[in-house]
Write a protein that binds this DNA or RNA. Structure first.
Length: 736
DNA sequence: CGAAAGGCTCTTTTT
DNA sequence: GAGCCTTTCG
């Protein structure tokens, strides 16, 4: 297949502009991914560039994986030598290999936000600062911001201007020290330390410059200052740097992403070739126009002319629901209707929202309707307690100095090592200038030599500590010659974790999760014991939620607007299109942040290929309290001639009085829709203990059943599927 | 030391 | 509403 056919002139130009700096401004759906992959293929196949001289940076691991898959078809056999990954993953690799020059050992662990907060809390305690007055989260984000702009603790302290910054400065210094003691790096460190490494050791940088002759960066609008610096460093010799982005889709400023990077690029590389990708292949004219009208209201932006040859398509549906429950109901109902009557499949539909908290009501509605769905974030897998616990054992095996992991599991499951003992242990260790882990080994030794006075603990505590120390030693020993799965099984068993789950009310779910983690570990069993542990832990630390997202599954996707960037769906519902939610209340009084909210809305709309629904609720329960939110100001910017309401959702004036009855409308006007909603007495009467069969969930046992208006809500425990609540009239349950 | 209960505060978005 | 922390009691 020829690399250049099936590309439009602008795309062709982008693929062929391989020498010197290139800035590609790519509108949504303009074939950006295609351009990047074809450009790499062009370099390899036509220009005979060795794949090992090419580096491509993506925003998520999923994007990297996709690119590898596509390239494997275009240039078979080359992908192994290509460097493709996220900034964080690439930097982690660099530091494992070359970090020693910076005092970073190759077995460093990566601390996530949770670990970071844990450390900060410990700092506050040490510095006698009240965590209630100085929110650890706020301090964490201040430190992160500093690191993203390459400000080190000393500089931060020097330039602190307020009391808060002074506090942050003090914490920052101690925080860095603790990370060093734990031989750990946080996310921002991965980037910052790499830049510092390159600054301090030009000879190391030179190696990377020689290797990566062609540099490409995707989602450039969402890079921060360190990332920009890094890209600049690596490409500083050959200047073959190609960045791709869309300022209108910049939605990560809160993560220190800086739109000015695009401007800086034009400034730093005045000879850069500028390429605009403006033809949209994804959406209908109506969707594109809707989106353009929304984004055009932003003041700080360059006007852009997006166009498409696609059909006009359906109008944009703007819906008012009464509450968030009704909103979810509408979405579920409409999806059922679409899938039943038209060619759309469940997998073609996505529901997007501003905050994760909004997903719950949607989930409940889908469960009641019996519609299979997939939640992209939710309670994130790697943030679950049982997963973090098990992972902490592995981290400790890899790096015994990891104090956060030690604190986490030293008494999980309970083995008689309480707060008192832990406190005593760390101060004793500190007084001797060793890590807590080393201190515990001293206790073991003291016991062996019967020199009990060598350590300050009573028999009970010292026994417990010694036993834990020996346990960990066993794991470390195992890790040196057994494969990862064997180690996994040993850890789960011998740590007592498996046993301790027996009393856990969520034991089944937790156990399933642990087994899922085991499958992840299995993927690394071909590597050597040492390598597999490092690779496993690194993948665990750097995954994102979208990475696990599999579009082939035929299920409705529930996803945040942020995560949806880069994805596309036939049908998109954006819910909660209200003031205080989109735009979010915390962005409303800052003009810049407000513009970002608008971009977020724009990203959401432009995900849609065929149909877009913008749904808002008149009344919404926030944190216990019910509030009335006006429709989002963004809706005002959509021309009325583009907007419609689905036929069955009548209500030309969908105001309160009307909306109250809309619930009934869903049922009454539903005649043409596939599922007939019965309002009478359910055909079967189910009670606890009955065995039932469900088309999706299989067989299960009724746990509870209660009357809801004219219907019954039945709670059923399905084998292997967990407990679901279903509406009897909708869920087509069969009594067996 | 650990389990249980009650009280508190936030919840935007995430590599 | 939930997760986290503190308090209380055995």
């Amino acid at each position: 297949m020829d690399i250049l056919t099936e590309l439009n002139p602008a795309q062709k130009k982008a693929v062929q502009a391989i020498n010197g700096p290139v800035l590609i401004l790519a509108g949504p759906g303009s074939g950006k991914t295609r351009v990047i992959t074809h450009r790499v293929a062009y370099l390899i196949r036509t220009c005979k560039v060795s794949p090992r001289h090419i580096i491509a940076v993506t925003f998520t691991n999923k994007a990297a994986k996709e690119m590898v898959e596509r390239l494997d078809k275009l240039v078979p056999g080359s992908v192994k030598e290509l460097t493709i990954g996220t900034f964080h993953a690439i930097c982690a690799k660099i530091l494992r290999i070359d970090g020693k020059a910076m005092g970073i050992e190759s077995n460093f662990v990566i601390y996530d936000d949770d670990d970071q907060t844990a450390i900060i809390k410990r700092c506050l305690q040490e510095l006698n600062l009240d965590p209630k007055q100085h929110a650890p989260q706020a301090i964490a984000s201040a430190i992160s911001k500093a690191k993203s702009t390459l400000i080190q603790p000393k500089d931060y302290v020097k330039r602190s201007r307020s009391y808060f910054e002074e506090v942050v400065g003090r914490v920052y210094e101690r925080y860095e020290q603790m990370l060093r003691e734990s031989k750990a790096l946080d996310f921002d460190d991965l980037l910052m330390k790499t830049v510092l490494l390159f600054r301090k050791h030009p000879e190391v940088l030179a190696r990377y410059q020689e290797r990566y002759i062609h540099v490409m960066v995707d989602e450039f609008q969402d890079t921060n200052l360190v990332q920009y610096e890094l890209v600049k460093q690596i490409s500083d010799k050959y200047h073959n740097i190609c960045v791709v982005g869309d300022p209108d889709q910049s939605i990560y400023s809160w993560r220190s992403a800086d739109l000015r990077n695009i401007l800086s690029f034009e400034h730093d590389y005045p000879d850069a070739t500028l390429i605009l990708l403006e033809q949209n292949y994804r959406s209908t004219k109506t969707i594109l126009e809707t989106a353009s009208n929304v984004i055009s209201a932003n003041k700080k932006r360059k006007a852009k002319r997006l166009w498409t040859e696609n059909d006009d398509g359906e109008r944009t549906f703007v819906i008012e629901a009464y509450t968030e429950q009704e909103e979810a109901q509408f979405v579920a109902n409409e999806i059922e209707r679409l899938v039943g009557r038209s060619h759309f499949r469940l997998g073609d539909c996505a529901v997007m929202y501003r905050t994760n908290a909004q997903s719950r009501v949607l989930e409940e509605a889908f469960i009641r309707y019996g519609i299979p769905y997939r939640l992209v974030a939710g309670t994130r897998f790697y943030e679950r307690r049982e997963i973090k616990d098990i992972v902490a054992y592995f981290r400790l095996v890899q790096n015994p100095h990891d104090s956060v992991s030690l604190q986490r599991i030293i008494n999980v499951p309970g083995r008689g090592i309480g707060q008192q003992t832990i406190g005593k242990l760390s101060s004793w260790a500190k007084s001797m200038g060793v890590s807590a882990y080393d201190a515990m080994q001293l206790i073991v030794e003291a016991k062996r030599n019967k020199n009990i006075d060598d350590q300050p603990f009573d028999v009970r505590s010292s026994d417990a500590l010694a036993r834990f120390s020996e346990l960990m030693d066993d794991f470390v020993e195992k890790s040196q010659n057994a494969n990862l799965v064997e180690l996994f099984d040993m850890v789960v068993e011998k740590s007592g974790y498996k046993q301790s789950l027996k009393n856990d009310p969520d034991k089944d779910e937790r156990w399933e999760n642990i087994m899922e983690l085991r499958t992840v570990a299995q993927q690394y069993r071909d590597l050597s014991p040492r390598e597999s542990l490092t690779a496993f832990l690194e993948s665990v630390a750097l995954v994102s939620d979208v990475d696990g997202y599999d579009e082939k599954l035929d299920r409705v996707t529930l996803i945040t607007l942020h995560q949806a960037k880069g994805l596309e769906f036939q049908v998109v519902f954006i819910v909660g299109v209200e003031e205080k939610l989109l735009p979010h209340i915390r962005s409303i009084d800052d003009p810049d942040q407000l513009e970002e909210e608008r971009r977020l809305c724009y990203v959401g709309i432009t995900r849609a290929k065929q149909r877009i629904y913008l749904v808002h609720a008149f009344r919404r329960t926030f944190m216990g309290t019910s509030t009335v939110n006006p429709p989002s100001r963004f809706l005002d910017d959509i021309p009325k001639n583009l907007v419609a309401t689905p036929g069955w959702w009548r209500g030309d004036e969908p105001r309160v009085s009307d909306a109250v009855f809309s619930w009934n409308r869903v049922r009454v006007d539903e005649t043409e829709s596939k599922p007939k909603v019965s309002t009478g007495v359910p055909a079967v009467d189910l009670k606890a203990g009955d065995h039932v069969r469900h088309s999706q969930f299989g067989e299960g046992v009724v746990v509870n059943s209660k009357k809801v208006n004219d219907d019954s809500e039945v709670t059923v425990a399905f084998s292997g599927q967990g407990i679901k609540r279903l509406l009897l009239s909708l869920a087509k349950l069969e009594n067996i």
